[in-house]
């Protein structure tokens, strides 16, 4: 007889929080057990694998901070280094760590724009947010690599719900599906890393996501650079704001499941011109039009 494994799978935040309460586990613990059942791996193996991914995230930040030249499009490059230098200056506004978090978000996206290696978290266009937050916690709060791996499982735990009930695709849901999801995951990860409860982590996700709803995907020239690079710096900070609100137990009126419903609804109604087609918004401003989108042509038509 084969043993039937107990499932830690869930479709909603409500179900996830119920599993946490039932087994007295954190979101990271539930996400780990869900994965262990599915992959047939031990918790230790999964954490070790996640540590490897965290290592790759760190490398992408380090690579990005080294960039001085511009990307092939000419739209990005060198700004992560500038922000880092500013953070080390005499009186950086809001303190050094503030500018440094922004620099890390920039760094990953600048690395990405130059065909460098990154970890999609959950997408490449939003890959700077979670690493910037965790690296900041590592430097400021002494987060260990193992704790970072656990925090990444918190992010996974929340990401699963978004993936099942909405999507991560800018082409289908706009930037809110990418940067909104990343920030939602990062905020929850920060809260659990700081010892917050599963409910507080879910609330942090709510705060982060409800304040990214409606964000469109209108990149200039179709390149993942403007506004994506600065947006990753900015929404890394946004994730900390959401975490602070949750840790302070500020009133969270809309539960995460309902915010995700709104994400899905807005994504469906968003016009296609604003969903990664570069046919509207920033992409079609006079500045945006200076950069060729490099569309593919239908057969037998000359390349545009």
């Amino acid at each position: 007889m084969h043993e039937v494994l107990s499932s830690f799978d869930y479709d909603t935040a409500e179900e996830l929080l119920a599993l946490c309460a039932q087994h007295d586990l954190s979101i990271a613990d539930v996400a780990l057990r869900r994965e262990a059942t599915e992959q047939g791996l031990t918790l230790e193996e999964l954490l070790a694998k996640m540590e490897e991914f965290y290592g790759k995230m760190r490398e992408s930040v380090a690579e990005g901070l080294k960039i001085h030249g511009t990307s092939p499009s000419g739209l990005s490059g060198g700004d992560a280094a500038k922000l880092y230098r500013y953070s080390e200056g005499e009186r950086p506004l809001m303190g050094s760590r503030f500018a440094r978090t922004i620099a890390y978000g920039f760094a990953v996206l600048e690395c990405n724009a130059q065909f460098g290696r990154i970890v999609a978290t959950p997408t490449a266009g939003s890959a700077g947010i979670v690493p910037a937050c965790l690296l900041t916690l590592e430097e400021e709060e002494g987060l260990t690599t193992r704790q970072a791996a656990r925090a990444l499982f918190t992010a996974v735990g929340i990401g699963v719900i978004i993936g099942k009930n909405a999507c991560f695709s800018g082409a289908r849901g706009g930037c809110q599906a990418e940067v909104g999801s990343a920030s939602c995951m990062a905020a929850a990860a920060i809260v659990e890393a700081q010892g917050g409860s599963p409910q507080q982590a879910a609330n942090a996700g709510s705060f982060a996501l409800m304040n990214t709803l409606g964000l469109v995907c209108d990149p200039i020239g179709g390149y993942v650079e403007v506004p994506c690079v600065s947006r990753n710096g900015m929404f890394a900070v946004h994730s900390f704001e959401a975490a602070v609100m949750a840790l302070a137990d500020a009133r969270c009126v809309v539960p995460l499941d309902h915010v995700i419903l709104a994400l899905h609804d807005i994504g469906r109604r968003m016009p296609r011109q604003l969903k990664e087609t570069s046919e509207g918004g920033l992409a079609t401003t006079p500045t945006g039009r200076k950069y060729k989108t490099g569309k593919f042509s239908p057969p037998n038509e000359p390349e545009g």
Binding site: D9, A31, R34, E35, E38, Q39, L46, K49, M50, F53, K56, C111, N112, A113, Q114, F115, G116, R117, I118, V119, A120, T121, P122, T123, A124, G125, A127, V130, L152, F153, A155, V156, G159, V160, G163, K164, F168, S169, G170, A171, M185, Y223, V224, E225
Partner: peptide
């Protein structure tokens, strides 16, 4: 089940886009 942990954190990839490049 759908969505493994390493679908959400990952793939480790060369940029610039997870959907348009890695996918």
């Amino acid at each position: 089940m759908g969505f493994s942990a390493f679908d959400i954190i990952g793939p480790a990839m060369v940029g610039p886009s997870s959907s348009h490049t890695a996918g």
